[in-house]
Design a protein around this nucleic acid. Structure first.
Lengths: 277, 277
DNA sequence: CGGATTGTTGATTGGAGTCAAAACGTGTGG
DNA sequence: CCACACGTTTTGACTCCAATCAACAATCCG
């Protein structure tokens, strides 16, 4: 029922069904005639436009059909923090469930399309279509899980490791949607990434070239190609001292030393991480 | 109906009502005769015991009545990350809503009491008592909001600022529950705090003494007293360069310089932050 | 074509990670 | 109760990574 591209000459109906929402989020198995009957208005969002405004009263959830967003929190002093990046299948506005106010601005990073689901109406509809209730629970759980993954990223010492984890998360999400697991386009600026990772934007730039120099990735502007997925996957695990001591225990290597070591391995024919443990 | 202490000689009934859950989480206004009829088993949890196990199938949500917990994620290499700390009114296990598996171990930091709510039964009950559905939404939203606050903490440059933000968050939550807004007892170890904040545990120790030296707090073992709430509130805003440039613009002061400046002010009679801006 | 934003690179220095060791607290068992 | 082991916390010394300041290139946009 997603008749956004119904081929009738650009007349976009700007509506979608509950079934579409279920499909976008990965609950296609719950689609049925009941969920087909529930309709939601859709909205095209142009780059830079805000879908939710921080502090505005929570009314609706926005289901992303296409495009991507960043969620930005601005504290009272004007400092900005990028709370996360959202794409197809993600839901905007869930933090409003807590106190009835959106917790950040959702800014479109590219032209996008979202379905607008009034929370009240969504709840009403869920009495007829229980899957819609599950939809909210699933989305909430994912949001929490996603935040925890972000914590893992920021917990990493070493900017290169943080960036490696970030890139692997992005590409994994993209791969889940059926796109390439090797090539990607960064929709956000270096500065946005820096804010999200808690590092300086110069460091993002330097770390990208470092990962490229070590042979893990190739960088051109905002296009990234993963050259050595296994090596990068291995490299992202470089952290500070293990809480559970390794049995063999030559734990003396610093993260930098390990990074350089891995870089050397990578130069010797992209073998880094190819070794199974 | 929370008859944990029903005064009949220590016989604890180990049960509570849906109304209790609503009260703990701050939805007392939704309490009614319907929610009284819904009952949940309760469980005492001793220090160090796990309530949820990472990777175990999601079945229940655990509502904390008393005590506190840490949520710990262990990655495949054995590195541990403290995802958060939970106390009265918080809900354990919400991340299981995403993929049906708990995302971390919930470890009791002290003897605690929780209500066990089978998610399936909770949903069934919510058909009779809609407030129970709201309960889950509210808890989810709060969890997301809480994670975003943790991101703010970790985004701070400077270990002392991170710690200041962390302490202010803890004390704010405690004050919400009606306890002191000045004195608190840290239930978790320095190492746990370090893991949560993404810094070395030695740095936690040093930063605590630094905040104490500057007159913001007093530290004795795990007991903390906020000596200068306004000063600490002001100090926590010390961040890196503003994204929105200040009009007067003497933006050259480094965070360390500002920290030392505030320390001097504090020494001159705890005046730091007392000035209104 | 300017102007602004974005991205890259360099030099410098402070801050925090790391290693080390000791003081302190806690719990256990004799 | 003491002795002992173990974990926690603190403090010190050193090194090095990343924030910062600065300059410049590249790109985007009106």
């Amino acid at each position: 029922m997603d008749n956004r591209m119904d081929g009738n000459g650009g007349l976009q109906s700007a509506r979608c069904s509950g079934s579409d929402l279920l499909r976008w989020i990965g609950m296609a198995h719950e689609v049925g005639p009941r969920s087909d009957q529930v309709v939601f208005p859709m909205r095209r969002v142009r780059t830079g436009t805000l879908v939710t405004h921080e502090g505005a009263p929570f009314e609706s959830l926005y289901f992303i059909n296409a495009g991507s967003f960043k969620s930005v929190h601005t504290d009272p002093d004007g400092y900005e923090l990028v709370q996360g990046f959202l794409g197809r299948g993600d839901v905007i506005g869930l933090d409003g469930l807590s106190d009835g106010v959106y917790g950040g601005d959702a800014v479109a990073l590219e032209d996008a399309t979202v379905a607008i689901a009034s929370f009240r109406e969504l709840l009403n509809a869920s009495r007829q279509v229980p899957a819609l209730e599950q939809l909210i629970f699933l989305a909430s759980g994912r949001e929490i899980r996603r935040k925890n993954m972000t914590l893992e990223v920021m917990a990493a010492v070493g900017a290169e490791v943080r960036l490696a984890r970030f890139l692997l998360q992005l590409i994994a999400r993209q791969a889940e949607q059926g796109y390439s697991a090797r090539r990607m386009v960064l929709r956000m600026s270096r500065r946005d990434i820096a804010s999200h990772l808690g590092i300086a934007h110069e460091t993002v730039s330097r770390s990208l070239t470092a990962l490229a120099d070590w042979g893990y990735i190739e960088v051109q502007h905002r296009e990234i190609e993963i050259l050595d997925p296994d090596g990068l996957e291995h490299f992202k695990r470089v952290t500070r001292g293990p809480t559970i001591k390794p049995p063999g225990g030559r734990g003396g290597a610093t993260r930098r030393a390990r990074a350089q070591e891995m870089a050397r391995m990578a130069e010797d024919g992209h073998a880094a991480g190819a070794t199974r443990f």
